[in-house]
């Protein structure tokens, strides 16, 4: 027997799940998406991911060590997740220094300025992306064509438009959907990711794989992704039913662009989401509708990032008004 017994308060049992496990679990869940991006964009994608993760971890380390002088938690996986998501949200031809600006915005402004992990109101990766999109609109919307010059670095690749961009431009010019068959890739291409787009936003199958892994590991619950996608389908579906000439079908909407990545990985970010299941459903439905609205009526071709950021701002309100169901309240059992 040790000399002094430990005395602590109950419970004396402890579950296995830790913050580190959750964060690295998300990283593992993002691996299929990463592999898909390397397959479609080659070394360029590897470069972007590597740089982004490094920038994020290093900037978190530097801020914690030298500016805030607090305990360094840069390696708990949360900065790596931010770095991965940031990389997945930019085109593969992005110059390194622009990525650095994004990483510093994500970690420095969106996360550490609010007190580090757990205290940030907005999703850091999305803030980084928003800052980059506002600062470097040209580079952020120059999309290299997939499956070409796999083994070269640099931004000299042949560029293409994302399905959403070309669609938006065409509709703006007054064309009808039925005439755009050559512009819209097949659902299969969209599903596996053989289209132009962000590093990690293209391959739906890879994202789903990661998403199911997180469900299996109980890192997330199904509520946010499912309700996000459902509400988006419902919203875009209504308009499609009204005027299929002007609006594209909902299946295209949830397969194209960053919706899958957003719904599975960014809306489910625990820190910036609501706590109760009810609240999460409200959050997801709001996000889906906003995203659809931005896509159909906004200037940006894809609105996932902004939809989630806007819903992030509502989280404190949602937490206040959507409480879990209490035991023993609202019961009228009479003898």
């Amino acid at each position: 027997m040790s000399k002094q017994l430990t005395v602590s308060l109950s419970p004396h049992e402890k579950g296995d799940l830790s913050v580190k496990q959750i964060m690295w679990g998300v990283v593992i869940a993002l691996i299929p998406t990463f592999l898909a991006s390397v397959y479609f964009y080659g070394l360029n994608s590897l470069r972007v991911v590597f740089l982004s993760v490094t920038f994020c971890i290093v900037s978190e380390f530097l801020i914690q060590e030298f500016i805030l002088k607090v305990k360094v938690t840069a390696f708990d996986g949360s900065a790596a997740v931010t770095g991965l998501l940031l990389a997945f949200n930019v085109p593969s031809g992005i110059p390194w220094w622009q990525l650095l600006v994004g990483a510093i915005a994500a970690i420095g402004i969106a996360k550490m300025a609010f007190g580090g992990l757990g205290n940030n109101p907005f999703n850091p990766a999305l803030v980084g992306r928003a800052v980059m999109l506002a600062s470097f609109p040209v580079q952020m919307t120059t999309w290299p064509e997939p499956m070409q010059k796999i083994w070269t670095f640099g931004a000299d690749a042949v560029t293409t438009a994302t399905p959403l961009t070309s669609l938006k431009d065409a509709i703006r010019e007054g064309k009808r959907i039925v005439d755009l068959a050559d512009l819209i890739p097949s659902y299969f291409d969209l599903f596996i990711g053989n289209v132009g787009g962000c590093v990690g936003g293209i391959s739906v199958v890879a994202i789903l794989l990661g998403g199911f892994y997180m469900l299996y590991k109980k890192i997330i619950t199904y509520h946010i992704p499912v309700f996000f996608l459902l509400s988006m389908v419902a919203f875009t579906g209504v308009f499609w039913l009204i005027d299929p000439d002007k609006y594209v079908d909902p299946l295209f909407h949830i397969l194209a662009g960053g919706v899958m990545l957003g719904a599975w990985f960014m809306a489910t970010d625990m820190v910036t989401g609501p706590m109760s299941i009810k609240g999460q459903i409200v959050f997801a439905v709001g996000g889906g509708i906003l995203c659809g609205a931005i896509r159909l009526f906004g200037t940006y071709p894809d609105g996932v990032a902004y939809a989630i950021l806007i819903m992030n701002a509502f989280v404190p309100l949602i937490d206040k008004y959507f409480k879990p169901k209490r035991f023993g309240k609202e019961v009228n059992y009479e003898q």
Partner: peptide, 18 residues
């Protein structure tokens, strides 16, 4: 010290509970 206390470092909590 006769034992090792493992819990939040707050007098109020420690006092209230043991």
């Amino acid at each position: 010290q006769q034992l090792h206390y493992d819990g939040p470092a707050k007098c109020a909590i420690s006092h209230a509970l043991f």
